[in-house]
């Protein structure tokens, strides 16, 4: 009886020390958190932010020719595309490309269905806005150059 009493105390103390070893190791190892917004993590290749239009590298115009595949595929019906031919071009180009991000579930079907890979995921995760409207009608065209340079662009400011 007395040996089991002593044994229990020794074993208990040992387990306490084992626990303390774990925490001190954790304390001396590198921290996992990042001081955002001073530091940013490099996001993985396959990170899925909201969708964005991919530009043609030479011109900076969107690759998109407003076929509307993405809008038709979208299960949440959150993409609105309208387009027409710019003067002297063979293909159409989008005049309106709106994303309702409040409905989007980031499933990626639009990206897969695009015949020319004109859609991709952005790496933008720190999104904030004062009103719901900012995300209900995100104008994806605003970040790209427009082939309708003569027309009045419908640029909107987005945070």
């Amino acid at each position: 009886m007395i040996t089991s009493y002593v044994h229990e105390i020794v074993r208990g103390t040992g387990s306490l020390l084992a626990g303390m070893k774990v925490t001190i190791k954790a304390m001396l190892s590198r921290t996992q958190t990042v001081q955002w917004p001073r530091q940013y993590l490099t996001l993985p290749q396959r990170f899925r932010g909201h969708i964005q239009l991919v530009p043609v590298e030479s011109t900076g115009y969107p690759k998109c020719f407003a076929c509307g595949n993405c809008a038709r595929t979208c299960p949440s019906k959150c993409i609105t595309v309208k387009g027409k031919k710019p003067e002297g071009a063979k293909k159409k180009s989008p005049t309106t490309f709106l994303l309702d991000f409040t409905k989007c579930s980031l499933c990626g079907l639009c990206v897969e269905s695009c015949p020319v890979s004109a859609l991709g995921f952005s790496k933008d995760y720190a999104m904030a806005g004062p009103s719901r409207q900012d995300f209900a009608e995100m104008d994806l065209l605003s970040s790209l150059a427009s082939p309708f340079s003569t027309q009045a662009s419908k640029e909107k400011d987005h945070g």
């Binding site: 925490t23 954790a26 304390m27 921290t31 958190t33």
Partner: peptide, 13 residues
């Protein structure tokens, strides 16, 4: 600080 570091955080910065 100790709490933070033991949980792989920075604590107050």
């Amino acid at each position: 600080k100790t709490a933070g570091r033991m949980q792989f955080r920075h604590g107050p910065m």
